[in-house]
């Protein structure tokens, strides 16, 4: 009898701290699709903040913790974890793990005076995580059908999502692809398909390939420049907004905090949603202006 397929959830520090309901939404939507969701509690942060700021020793310390966290498995079950997908709730963090971590951990081990073999071992451990990590919307597009083609997972699990009965046609939403998703993971289409399956029509912004100005510590150390870049992005957002886009959606919470925070500062309550939140809403038949507004507002109450 086939086992329930397992996935490990990599929520990212930003989702964990600032918008945990993105993680909760991800758990729900994955479970609806017949997955056994595991959350390695020892995960903290992929270290990208420190990495991008040039603090590679510090980034490596966090990176090693991430590697350890996702290696944890039930005693006697250690081999199995090597095939378990690690679903990341951020394109940028997924890119950090898949593109930078193996080099970083190897280099850092050597810098700390470790033997070649030790450094190689860190590289291999990071590479193993890098192979497993996959951004949520990519996973949803690529693997959900395969998972659900297995009848053992129960026929109630939706392959796509079922728009609510009161929905007339797809709900237009504005879609922003984060830069690392676009240029490191080279992913632009899958999230649009995921939105489609959820009953939403994703409209990219004009100048979609321009950075929103988040950039990790860049946003903290250069607030004026970063905000000017956000304002350019928000001007571009005016186009889909005028065409009726119900909210701004992205697979990266960093971009959403940046753009949402800038909107809020201007007293603008336009909703911003993580793709996990949108799919979760759609699963429940609540992908409506009201449902979206409620989901976006909930953010304020989390403090």
């Amino acid at each position: 009898m086939p086992q329930t397929p397992r996935v490990q959830l990599f929520v990212t520090c930003m989702v964990d701290l600032f918008r945990p309901r993105v993680g909760i939404a991800a758990v729900r939507l994955l479970e609806r699709r017949g997955l056994a969701v595991e959350f390695p509690m020892a995960q903290t942060c992929c270290g990208q903040f420190a990495f991008n700021a040039g603090h590679h020793k510090e980034a490596a310390a966090m990176g090693r913790q991430l590697v350890r966290a996702f290696e944890q498995a039930t005693p006697g079950d250690a081999a199995a974890v090597a095939d378990v997908p690690v679903i990341a709730l951020s394109g940028s963090c997924a890119a950090m793990v898949s593109h930078e971590l193996p080099d970083l951990l190897e280099r850092d081990a050597l810098d700390r005076g470790a033997a070649r073999a030790t450094a190689q071992r860190w590289r291999r451990r990071a590479e193993s995580l890098a192979r497993r990590v996959v951004e949520l919307s990519v996973w949803l597009e690529r693997d959900v059908a395969r998972v659900n083609s297995n009848p053992a997972e129960g026929s109630t699990a939706p392959t796509a999502t079922q728009p609510g009965p009161d929905t007339v046609g797809p709900v237009p939403v504005a879609w922003h692809t984060g830069c690392h998703m676009r240029r490191l993971l080279q992913v632009t289409e899958p999230p649009i398909h995921v939105l489609e399956a959820a009953g939403a029509a994703g409209h990219e912004l004009p100048d979609a390939d321009q950075c929103c100005g988040f950039g990790g510590t860049f946003a903290l150390s250069e607030p004026e420049l970063s905000a000017a870049m956000a304002d350019t992005k928000l001007q571009a957002l005016a186009t889909p907004r005028a065409d009726g886009a119900a909210c701004l959606v992205s697979a990266d919470l960093g971009c959403l905090l940046q753009l949402g925070g800038r909107l809020q500062r201007a007293g603008d309550t336009y909703p911003v949603l993580h793709v996990a939140e949108l799919v979760d809403l759609a699963d429940q038949g609540e992908l409506t202006p009201l449902g979206i507004a409620r989901a976006a507002e909930a953010r304020g109450g989390e403090g």
Partner: peptide, 28 residues
């Protein structure tokens, strides 16, 4: 860092219940 962010943008606070805590309460 907080000052840098808040100079030009609002932010949600650290959640009353992080995902870690939510998972610990419900699942772990």
């Amino acid at each position: 860092l907080l000052g840098g962010w808040l100079a030009t943008r609002d932010a949600p606070p650290v959640a009353r219940e992080t995902f870690h805590e939510w998972w610990g309460r419900h699942r772990g």
